[in-house]
Structure formats: structure tokens, C-alpha cells
Amino acid sequence: MDASQNTSNSVDHHLAEEHQKYFTFFNVSIALIMLTAIELVIVYVPIHPGIVMGSLVVMSLIKFLAVIWWFMHLRWDMILCTLVFLSGLIIATGTVIALMLLFSEDPSGAPMI
């Protein structure tokens, strides 16, 4: 590669960092698979559905955050990327939650349309 002739100190440092990332990515992917396996099993476990639901939400959230934090490099990138993405994520999450609440029974007993 002709580009490799251009390597300077910063690139060597870069290489070492990239090697380190391999182990991080490997650990993250193992964790993702373990969590998915637990998710698949837990829905059949005869415990209170609220606990199942809660743990599903927590586990998906951990998986979601793990992918964006490590695989999508947010951990190593400027904070700006995280902020831009969070702007969308927060508004989207808020909208989904608000819509779900709007389609629930009203506490005052108003009929749902």
C-alpha cells in the first residue's frame, strides 16, 4: 500500500489503538450474544411478567447502548456525535412513549377513540 509509506508517529499510535479495539469488540459481541440468549430464555421462565418485561427492557437498552458506544465508536469520537444522535434518540423515545400513553385508557374514564 502506497499509503503505508506515509505513516508517521500518529499512525503508529493509531495502529496500537486499533489492535486494542479488537479485544473490546470481541468482548462486546460475546456480551451481546449472552444477553440475547438470556432474553430468549427469560420469556419462558414462570416468574412475574412485570419482572420479565422490566429485564427485557433493561437488557435491550444495554445491547442498544453497547452497540452505539463501542461498535459505533461513540466512545472514541468527539462528544458532538453523541449529542447529535441523542437529539434524535431522545425526541423519538419521548414521542413513542407519549403515543403509547395517548392510546391508553384515560384515568378519568373518557372513552378511547
Binding site: I91, G94, T95, D106, P107, S108, A110, M112, I113
Partner: peptide, 21 residues
């Protein structure tokens, strides 16, 4: 801009959203 995402249902007051909403 931010609050603009949290007020959409005021276009729909007369549809009967319920008191809380």
C-alpha cells in the same frame, strides 16, 4: 424548537384525548 415536538396534540383537543393528555 424542542418544545415544538411536545405540543402536537393541541391540534386535536376536540377529538377527546382525555383529561390528562
Amino acid at each position: 424548537g424542542f418544545l415544538g415536538f411536545a405540543v402536537w396534540s393541541h391540534h386535536m383537543f376536540t377529538t377527546g384525548l382525555g383529561i390528562v393528555a
